[in-house]
Design a protein around this nucleic acid. Structure first.
Length: 519
RNA sequence: GGCCCCAUCGUCUAGUUAGGCCCAGGACAUCGGGUUUUCAUCCCGAAAACAGGGGUUCAAAUCCCCUUGGGGUCACCA
């Protein structure tokens, strides 16, 4: 394949859609696989909003995931400009060409003149009333400044055939098509025109986009042909569906997703994490946005891996793949045809895999900002604090999946007298058992005078204690865990004690006993 | 509704282009057992699918037709 050029053309909406990201990724992968170029072009034809504000998060998503672009905003390129709003001359020139060559015409029909029924509308528009206007009528319209749009003259009795890289052969009957508007009355181009001009002028070889674009592809093909351009290779990939369904993942259905069992845990996570790191209202973030995953502590490797596996596979068994491995193996013919639902569980499992590939220092680096933003540590770079974070992460082992999971282990970062006890665990393990309180008291005394407070020594101390008291480990360890950590579950008991240190353990046990006795 | 697309375990998928190697393989989730005298892991195991009906063929998940189901799209949006 010689010099492959692909592109992704987002419109600046203020956020990057996770499904759009997958489409962008496929384009990027195909370009990289072939040593070609990936172009970012901004479809900003309706310039309502503040562009930099609306574009920022989109570029940020690409940067976060490490998907670089060879041409586009910030980097320029020889086929620019890369903002559609700056390319009007190109569109006008193309429209003029279509007009003079008779492949398009000015249409003066007002929208209120078009019949409403589908068949009636098609029949009416196929007559092309504006082409039947006499010269004097035309002159009159011009004179009175009657608004007009430019429509593409769709040839009748023709079958438009498309050879799609993932769909195969698809055809459309032009007799069912209404001449599409390509230039608005205000002189700005419509998507179908702009995208063709841009793709052709930018020498795009492969148009890889979501399948919802399949139905306006025939219009584009007709424009390509009318303008004498070569057709690019089309590849209509399935869209990303909402978890547990086949419906296109959409920002408009957020409320529905909130109630979906598959989706719920992602919203729950947002609710538990975002407020703690100072993002009010979850920072306006939701799982449809790429930014959600960044802010909650997912790894780019995991998102990329999950997105790549959504609608594409290497073979019958490979699941975990680095970006390099994906680039090496990515081909269009292995793209799946049907829509695939985003699976939060599977995503989390990819995340877990990639988190485990990180060194301890890297994990510390990922988790520290969460502790700082939650106010649990002042400055994570202070050696003693960094040391403690490292120890906790080490103790967390596979419990650390998403970087923000560190917040679930805040017992290692709060002052002893600030430790909150989970009421349920406290009641079950300590309050309800008079024996537990007595045992805790005895154990505390032993801990207070232990020579060695390392995990290994504590392990032995506990076992000796249990033997001496002639009880089972289960009779003390749960009470101990709750009293020092406030929780019923957590990292390994001995690591937990060792990390907290003798003074904290003793104080916390004393406090728990006092609380249990109601003093 | 018209047009178009899609259809393998609950989910993501392999297998479909070149029919037999598939009474269908992997992963996630689920369930059971073992390890861990705590928690999480880990290990082992189980359950779980070719939407239905017709063809073609010695042979069909794979090819053809029909039905059903799901989805997308029908703008002077992109």
């Amino acid at each position: 394949m010689s010099n492959v050029r692909t592109r992704f053309a987002p419109s600046p909406t203020g956020y990057m859609h996770i499904g759009g990201m997958r489409t962008a990724l496929f384009n990027w992968l195909w370009a990289r696989h072939n040593g070609g170029q990936f172009i970012l072009r901004i479809d900003d034809t309706d310039q309502e909003r503040n562009l930099s504000e609306a574009l920022g998060p989109i570029l940020q998503a690409f940067k976060w995931l490490g998907l670089d672009w060879d041409e586009g905003p910030e980097v320029g390129g020889e086929y620019g400009p890369y903002f559609q709003s700056e390319r009007n001359d190109l569109y006008r020139a193309a429209v003029d060409q279509l007009l003079t060559e008779g492949n398009a015409y000015r249409c003066y029909v007002r929208t209120d003149e078009i019949p409403s029924g589908r068949d009636e509308k098609l029949e009416f528009m196929r007559q092309r009333p504006s082409l039947k206007l006499s010269q004097s009528e035309l002159d009159q319209y011009e004179a009175e400044g009657r608004p007009s749009v430019v429509r593409l003259k769709v040839p009748h009795d023709q079958i438009v055939k498309i050879e799609d890289a993932v769909r195969g052969h698809v055809e459309f009957d032009t007799n069912l098509m209404i001449d599409p508007v390509i230039l608005r009355a205000n002189g700005t181009p419509l998507y179908n025109l702009a995208t063709v001009i841009d793709d052709a002028q930018m020498q795009i070889t492969h148009v890889i986009r979501a399948e919802e674009h399949l139905s306006n592809t025939p219009i584009q093909v007709l424009i390509y042909q009318a303008l004498g351009y070569d057709l690019p290779q089309f590849a209509h990939i399935p869209f990303v569906a909402a978890p547990g369904g086949k419906e296109k993942l959409s920002k408009r259905k957020l409320e529905k997703y909130r109630k979906s069992p598959q989706f719920k845990k992602m919203f729950d996570k947002a609710e538990s994490v975002f407020p703690r790191i100072g993002l009010e209202n979850a920072g306006g973030l939701d799982p449809v946005m790429v930014e959600y995953y960044e802010k909650i502590g997912y790894l780019p490797e995991a998102i990329l891996n999950a997105l790549a596996r959504l609608g594409w596979s290497l073979d019958d068994k490979t699941e975990n793949m680095s970006l390099d491995k994906i680039i090496e193996n990515f081909t269009l013919d292995r793209i799946v045809k049907s829509a695939a639902g985003l699976d939060p569980d599977k995503l989390l499992s990819f995340q877990s895999h990639w988190m485990n590939q990180l060194s301890l220092d890297e994990k510390v680096e990922r988790c520290s900002p969460f502790l700082e933003n939650a106010g649990l540590v002042q400055d994570a770079s202070v050696p003693e604090i960094k040391q403690r974070i490292s120890q906790v992460i080490l103790g967390m082992e596979d419990r650390l999946k998403v970087a923000s999971d560190i917040l679930d282990f805040d017992e290692f970062f709060v002052a002893d007298d600030q430790l909150e006890y989970d009421p349920k665990a406290f009641k079950k393990r300590i309050q309800k058992s008079a024996e537990a309180v007595i045992l805790l008291g005895k154990l505390k005394d032993q801990l207070a005078k232990a020579d060695d407070f390392g995990a290994g020594a504590l392990d032995k101390l506990l076992h000796d204690f249990v033997d001496a008291e002639e009880i089972g480990m289960g009779q003390i360890i749960h009470a101990l865990r709750v009293s020092v950590s406030g929780k019923g579950t957590g990292i390994g008991m001995f690591d937990c004690l060792a990390i907290l240190g003798r003074a904290s353990c003793v104080r916390r046990i004393e406090r728990a006993i006092a609380l249990a006795q109601g003093t």
